[in-house]
Simulated scan of single mutants.
Amino acid sequence: MSARDDALAAAMAEPDPSSLAAAARLRRSFDADDAAWALAQAALRRSAAGRFARADEMLFTRAGLEQATREPVARWRAARFVAAGVTQVWDLGCGIGLDSMAFAEAGLRVVAVEADGETAAVAAHNLALVDGDAEVRVGFAEEAAVPPGAAVFLDPARRTAKGRTWNVADFTPPWDFVLGHLASERFVAVKLGPGLPKELIPASVLAGWTSHRGDVVEATLWNRLGTGTEAVVLPHELRVTSPPALEVRPLGRYLLEPDGAVIRAGLVSAVAPGSDVWLLDRHTAYLSADEPVDTVYATTFEVDEVLPYDVKVLRRWVADRGVGTLEIKKRAIDVDPAELRRKLRPKGLGAATLILARTLAGTVAIAARRVGR
């Protein structure tokens, strides 16, 4: 083992690697740089615990951990590469290697390319945990000589000194380079943020939005899977060529809240094929039904009561029922749920959900409870 390995083992044994006491103890036995590196890695591993199966063996950078693909999403995407007949994938801009690890675990030959040498070293360590033959190269994505027949995965950096950006002039690698790969004959997937502006989506690709455990985590562009949009609510995939048109009708016995990925993909009307569902408002992504609807693409609530959207009325309702735990949901209504919750002064042992929704009768507060999934 190297001195850094020994330092990391000592840092991992510390109750709080970020404490001054831990730093003092490690500096008694290790070089200051090695001690600082080890303590930082131990803290990052603890932050990653529960998110990544091998977090206690991996190395991280802070930026890489913040931007890393969730493991179930990376594995789902790798499986799609395999299903497409891909045998080799070049991960251009691999970061700390989370996606590359998923590709390798799926049996694909991986070549990972990263411009930053320190980050590339972290990726090499992580990839070696699952595939000793995987290759990590230091270099720019646009300079990589990808061989014919190899697939490409791209995750363009979309950050500036001011934070995240959708100005394509600030993307790394350049957006024209990304578009060139999407227009190529090879199999290509491009990971982007879930806030992807629709005007950036080429007409020739499949654009998908993926959610995991209720969070919309990313958008992906695919160049060899047809065109249109899809919603992926892991592990389920919703792709509809022509979503049905729905009527706008009064609130029924049930309210359906589509998953965020479904909303971003524009597939709200397709969440429950064969069921009699309708919209509460033409421009709001709430559906209703008179019968319970079983769908993985939406949460179904049974309506208990419909109240005026009035703070005094709602405060009295909360107090009368002894509601202490109050969930407030809303769509297309200019209100801060946290601020409204303070105004309603929840206190007691009860729990309730209020859904603020636009309806044909105006904006109302719907007291409801989850049913089904």
Rank of each mutant, 00 (worst) to 15 (best):
A13Y: 01
A13F: 01
D16G: 01
A21D: 14
A24E: 15
R27N: 11
R27Q: 13
R28A: 13
R28Q: 14
R28H: 10
D31C: 10
A32I: 09
D33T: 14
D33G: 09
D34F: 09
D34K: 13
D34L: 14
A35L: 04
A40N: 15
Q41A: 12
A42S: 13
A43D: 15
A43L: 00
A48I: 11
R51I: 01
R51G: 12
R51D: 10
A53P: 04
A53V: 11
D56N: 04
E57F: 02
E57Y: 02
L59A: 09
F60H: 05
T61Y: 03
R62E: 15
E66P: 00
Q67L: 12
A68S: 14
A68F: 05
T69F: 00
T69R: 02
T69D: 01
E71H: 13
P72W: 00
V73K: 11
V73M: 13
R77Y: 03
R77L: 13
R77N: 08
A78Q: 10
R80M: 00
F81C: 06
V82N: 10
V82Y: 10
A83M: 06
G85Q: 11
V89P: 03
V89E: 00
V89N: 03
D91I: 02
L92G: 11
G93S: 12
G93T: 10
G93A: 13
C94N: 09
C94P: 08
G95L: 01
I96Y: 00
I96C: 03
L98S: 12
D99Y: 08
S100N: 02
M101S: 05
A104S: 15
A104D: 06
A106N: 06
A106H: 03
A106C: 04
G107P: 11
V110H: 04
V111A: 08
A112D: 11
E114I: 00
E114A: 05
D116T: 09
G117R: 14
G117N: 02
T119M: 13
A121V: 03
A121W: 00
A121C: 01
A121T: 04
V122Y: 09
H125L: 02
N126F: 03
N126W: 05
N126S: 06
A128M: 03
L129E: 10
V130G: 07
V130A: 06
G132N: 06
D133Y: 02
A134K: 04
V136M: 12
G139W: 02
G139V: 05
F140L: 14
F140S: 12
E143G: 07
A145M: 08
G149Y: 08
A150Y: 01
F153R: 00
